[in-house]
Design a binder for these strands. Structure first.
Lengths: 212, 212
DNA sequence: CGGGTGTGTTAACGAGCGCTAACCCAGGGG
DNA sequence: CCCCTGGGTTAGCGCTCGTTAACACACCCG
């Protein structure tokens, strides 16, 4: 279980492989996949350089495993979250938000890497990860449309992406403590999801928006 | 004027330097700064390889100029947007949203690069860009707090970052046409900004959120 | 006690890439 | 007419970096 479980105990001590993945995630998040060398990753876990090849086939394999496992985790946990709300559509959506907020706050590096470095995967791995991500988005789209049935699917999908952007913005702001941040993101996300459903109203009114 | 002006005419034809920056922005956005070679950038504008050194001191200079000019543009245009709404706080905020949405939709590559590749700048350039970004955020924070005076500053700042994340999510979703997307993002952003101000209400109610 | 397995080390190779060197040529102004 | 300037070419250098090779050693099982 390589993901921090939001306040749980240190959970034994992850052994090498996971230790390496954690260090690599942090470095990839800060400097990008190509901006980090094998030696730096090794140094970050106290071994030096090529020792990593005892644990991974190559550098790509680290990124691959990292992104694959995070995508799998999000999908699986997302599905369970919805099921756990059995029937109550609104609760399902709100729990989904809650879950994603917690995950983003507890794993900012993984969020960054997944957002920024998908393109550095080999093509088959990329397809696999994209597939998992698509299915995760699908979970959200369904949850959103159950609460807001008059949203067409493309709009719901775009809204889901936008909410991910909102929640995943977390690596870029460290001004609030964790719980305040979680509460803020939760409220903003829920409000944003509800927005496209509202009466059109003030889209073109307050002053003339067409001319600069 | 290197930025597409939201539907305007092709605007003469950008000369080399800008042409190169545009191509480089697209490539950096897709593959990351280190993932793109000089030769590829050259090829993208029809010249090959080292010809670029007639126009830029080195590869870093391209990224530097790209990010500096986009930050300057955002700050300056953001300030003008607020001034143009002279006095009307709500109009100012909504025009700010409108402006940022338009910019993000018209310059997705620049948005991506600015978000992903800040770390690849030399340290002095990085400071410069960060300074400009900070001042742009400040414009937003002031605008937000004029409309929602009971928000403390850190919260307003965090909210601003979150809204940037929401709006900047645009490179990742191409399901709607431009105008629908603009309208959607505008509504979601405005609703998200208003959210932290609302009565606490349903934060801990619907089903028990504490236990997983 | 002795060898296999797992994990680490250092040295070195080879590819890729940023950048420079050296050369070329179109075109316009004295 | 000539040369200067601006923008292009190809060849090649040197460094970085991913990866492999060869070796070392701790521990455990028979």
């Amino acid at each position: 279980m390589p993901f921090t479980s939001a306040g749980g105990p240190p959970a034994a001590k992850p052994h090498r492989r996971d230790q390496i993945l954690n260090a690599a995630a942090g470095l990839f998040a800060r400097h990008g996949f190509h901006g980090v060398g094998i030696d730096e990753i090794g140094a970050a876990v106290g071994v030096s350089g090529p020792a990593l090849y005892r644990h991974f086939r190559n550098k790509d394999a680290m990124l691959s495993e990292m992104l694959t496992s995070v995508s799998e985790h999000l999908l699986e946990a997302g599905q369970r979250t919805v099921e756990a709300a059995a029937g109550d559509a609104e609760a399902a959506l709100h729990r989904l938000v809650r879950f994603h907020v917690d995950f983003a706050l507890d794993n900012p590096s993984l969020i960054s890497v997944q957002a920024r470095n998908l393109a550095n995967l080999t093509e088959p791995d990329q397809r696999r990860v994209r597939g998992l991500q698509r299915r995760y988005v699908e979970v959200w789209v369904e949850a959103i449309r159950k609460v807001h049935p008059d949203l067409d699917e493309p709009t719901a999908r775009a809204a889901a992406h936008a909410v991910f952007g909102l929640i995943n913005s977390t690596p870029h702001s460290r001004h609030l403590d964790r719980d305040q941040m979680a509460a803020l993101l939760y409220r903003m996300a829920v409000a944003a999801i509800a927005a496209p459903d509202l009466p059109s109203a003030r889209l073109a009114d307050d002053t003339d928006l067409a001319t600069g």
